[in-house]
Nucleic acid binder design. Structure first.
Lengths: 148, 148
DNA sequence: GTGCGTGCAAATTCTTTGCAATGCA
DNA sequence: TGCATTGCAAAGAATTTGCACGCAC
């Protein structure tokens, strides 16, 4: 399982301890295909009787987010959730119906960033590119009139 | 003042009333060059003794945001603030030092969105492209060693 | 054994809501 | 005048912090 070890490597590289709780959080993250909130992870952990506190979920997400292993996703109006970050530079697309996430590679964002720098004179430090829509499966369902 | 009338047109088009408080909020928004939070607007309004409640600021921002006159901006880690939206489709770049905002036109995001749709099969509904960096003035200052 | 990590509960921050009074159209 | 709008205060949601105990190293 390369993903799990990727997470634990992140912890040890920072001189942090690998605890039962952190492993449980990482497991939950890997099981939550797609996006997830701290609250959702906490629910999953409670369901699997792992007894990890919400505080720990928040703190672990903070660590993983600093280390670049997960990233926050944003909707048009709200901060929404986290996703597992790609291994290389990428952006995320999240299904607004089921929450599943896909990764975007070769998105052409470098050109976009360069153009923006040229246009505005800004020294650009980072960028958030966040797409939202319906995944293939949900788009199919929505084509049929579902009511309400 | 085309900007002010643009805001009031938005209200009347929705059948909403043009009140002293909403005008004050719009004034504050236009004075706040760059990005601003509801709290900051409220502070500005209190400073200019306009006596507009925080609740009203939130509600007015909600209306303007729905009407597309302002939009929310996102940092890498947090929902941050609002900015005045462009008159046409555009994206925003915000200075991480002073909060000033520039608008980006011809950003090439259509191609990006199309490529993403092709790659993932998603039916893309909307996208958030948010850039952050140092504006020209702040970049200059930061070049000199400022300490801490 | 040491000190990081944990979990509870309380604190904090941000935002929304209920309701009576106000004022725009 | 009628009804949208306001503002207070209180509720609510999300997240952070303080502190005593437990466990990884």
């Amino acid at each position: 399982m390369p993903d799990t070890s990727r997470f634990s490597a992140l912890l040890t590289a920072k001189g942090l301890r690998l605890t039962r709780q952190r492993e449980a959080v990482v497991d939950a993250i890997l099981q939550a295909k797609g996006s997830f909130t701290a609250q959702e992870l906490h629910d999953m952990l409670r369901a699997s009787r792992s007894g990890v506190g919400l505080t720990t979920v928040y703190r672990t997400l903070e660590i993983l987010s600093e280390g670049g292993a997960v990233e926050r996703v944003h909707g048009l109006n709200h901060c929404e959730a986290f996703v597992v970050a790609g291994k290389h530079h990428s952006h995320t697309i999240v299904c607004s119906n089921c929450g599943s996430a896909s990764e975007l590679v070769d998105c052409g964002c470098d050109e976009l960033v360069a153009a923006a720098a040229r246009q505005t004179g800004f020294r650009i430090e980072d960028h958030v590119i966040q797409l939202r829509g319906l995944c293939r499966a949900c788009a199919r369902k929505h084509r049929e009139p579902v009511g309400v």
